[in-house]
Nucleic acid binder design. Structure first.
Lengths: 177, 177
DNA sequence: ACATATAAACCGTCCAGACGGTACAGTTCC
DNA sequence: GGAACTGTACCGTCTGGACGGTTTATATGT
């Protein structure tokens, strides 16, 4: 029961932000959306920061899990691109946790910053062309961030074309020149 | 005085967010930071949304002004890359207005979304290789967004290498193939 | 089999503080 | 004389969090 409830709360919180903005993320509204009392919510997350911390931890864990640990760098980077762009449109919209963190306590983005730094470190130490690989990652993230911030800028067709091209670039950059 | 005061208020608001996070952006604290009374602040911006609207308008105007209107697409895109990456590290940190918008009223990012869409439209209608040009813009934005969100991920050296490479990519992509 | 004990899971209410915004009478500067 | 403020006092609302109480599952002793 506990595990489910916690998950339910995290999901509810994300949906709330997606639909009504981060300003709507109050303990009471989250509790209501999750079908739990405020007291019950605070039982699982002793305060608001803890809730947001949980949201971000869940986001990172979920993504990293699905990303896997392909030994082959090209495979890994390709998975990164695909997953990020897929997350955007359909799957578990846990991305909004970042917004909650920013709005409430900037320190809470640290885990995300650490994770990003770790990915970047891998890129810089393994890629044949670290600069290009970084650019590929940044472009992917750029699209993801914009979407998260509500800045829809690119048509779906262009999005797909960008994804396709990024994957080609990965392929090219790992061929011998 | 009016023009100066307004500018002072906008600057103060941005500095506040940068240093203490968007949660610290209250009318009273902005007024105090700008050396103005709360009444004085509300004289210029009748409510908080208007203040944030002003911040974003200023950000866009400032950037677009400095971007110029180079007829040559390659020059224009290069200027975009340089300006965005320069803005990040030193100049008028007006970027934080986006955070304020997100935290208070998502509708307020609309002007920024419109502006971005306009840039994207230019890219898609003018560039010889629209997909690559879009990728270049997205990578630039990706770095900018991350920095804004407090996700510092790339060393200064890598940042410079990325900028250099992006400019080369622009050059290559506008050469005949 | 059954009472007892105990901790986890959860409910509902209350409150102090903060915030956005109003009102308005005065003041300074062009 | 009006635009550009200052300063103070105030209101209504919302929110995070504290707290005391209640149900439910689980374990234990007999």
């Amino acid at each position: 029961m506990s595990k489910d409830t916690k998950q339910q709360i995290l999901d509810a919180a994300n949906h709330l932000i997606e639909q009504e903005g981060v300003a709507a993320l109050t303990l009471e509204s989250v509790a209501a959306a999750a079908g739990v009392s405020k007291g019950g919510l605070l039982y699982h997350f002793p305060n608001k920061d803890a809730l947001i911390e949980g949201m971000i931890a869940h986001l990172i864990q979920n993504f990293d899990e699905r990303l896997g640990q392909s030994a082959d760098f090209a495979d890994w980077l390709a998975a990164y691109v695909r997953l990020t762009l897929a997350d955007m449109s359909l799957l578990s919209q846990a991305q909004f946790s970042i917004l909650a963190a920013i709005a409430n306590n900037p320190d809470l983005v640290q885990p995300m910053a650490d994770q990003t730094a770790a990915w970047q470190k891998r890129i810089e130490s393994v890629a044949k062309d670290p600069v290009l690989a970084t650019i590929i990652r940044l472009a992917t993230d750029g699209l993801w961030y914009a979407e998260m911030l509500g800045i829809r800028q690119v048509s779906d067709e262009m999005k797909q074309a960008v994804e396709k091209r990024l994957l080609e670039m990965i392929h090219d950059s790992t061929q011998s020149e």
